[in-house]
Amino acid sequence: MTDLACGAGDFDDPDYATAHVDLYGMKHSVRWPRGATLVDTLIAAGLDVPFSCKEGHCGSCAATVVTGKVDMAVCDILQAEDLADGVILSCQARPLTDDVYVEF
């Protein structure tokens, strides 16, 4: 079950979460600083993650949270149904739980 928020997170926590990511059919696990976005974390890990604007306006970085909880600073382009289905903008997503599993 997913639990998504928009604008509710505390990003001052210096701790890390673990992102388990299915990207182009390959599974990856990376340390995810709680103050960093998923896109920035995956880029830093050397992964070729889809993105364009990094501002939450285009949707090219959309992914689905399978388990875990994230917060997004900007998610205006997502509908309530998208959020209910676990769709996130990975350029805006920051972890709220210790483990988050995401599929692109």
Rank of each mutant, 00 (worst) to 15 (best):
V66I: 15
L23S: 08
E55R: 14
T41W: 08
P33I: 04
T41G: 07
V100Y: 11
D13Y: 00
A62R: 15
T37H: 02
D48Y: 00
K27R: 15
K27W: 02
A62H: 13
A36D: 11
A84V: 01
T97Y: 05
F11Q: 09
L89G: 03
Y24F: 12
G7Y: 10
D15H: 11
L42I: 03
L83I: 15
K69L: 03
A17P: 14
R94L: 02
I43F: 05
F104Q: 05
F104S: 03
D15A: 14
V74G: 06
A45N: 10
A44V: 07
Y16K: 07
C6F: 10
M1Q: 13
D40I: 08
H20M: 06
Q92I: 01
A73C: 03
A93Q: 10
L89N: 08
P50K: 03
I43D: 05
C6P: 01
C61T: 05
T18N: 07
D71L: 03
K54Q: 14
P33N: 06
M26D: 15
D22A: 01
L83T: 15
I88Q: 10
T18R: 13
D99R: 14
C58M: 08
G59D: 01
D48A: 13
I77Q: 12
A93Y: 07
G86N: 04
C91D: 11
A17F: 06
A63D: 05
K69I: 00
A84H: 01
Y24C: 09
F11P: 00
A73T: 08
G25Y: 06
G68T: 03
D3K: 15
H20V: 12
C91E: 10
E103M: 02
A73G: 05
G46W: 04
L23Q: 05
A45F: 13
D82R: 04
P50A: 01
V30G: 07
P95A: 02
C58F: 08
C53D: 00
V49I: 15
M26P: 00
D40V: 05
F51E: 05
M1W: 09
E55F: 00
D12G: 14
C6E: 08
D40N: 12
P33V: 01
A8T: 13
T18K: 08
G59L: 05
C53L: 00
Y101V: 14
M1L: 10
F11M: 06
H57S: 12
Y16F: 13
L38W: 05
F11A: 13
G7D: 04
D12N: 13
H57Y: 00
F11V: 07
L83R: 15
D12Y: 02
T2A: 09
D85Y: 04
T2R: 15
L47A: 03
G86T: 02
T67G: 01
M26H: 07
V102Q: 02
W32L: 14
F104I: 04
D13M: 04
A36F: 09
V74S: 09
P14D: 11
Y101E: 15
A93L: 06
W32Y: 07
D71Y: 03
I88L: 08
L38Y: 00
I88C: 00
M26A: 11
G59C: 04
G9P: 12
C53F: 00
L89R: 06
I43W: 05
D3C: 10
C58G: 02
C75T: 00
A63S: 11
C75D: 06
T41Y: 11
A44I: 07
Y24K: 14
Q79H: 09
F104N: 02
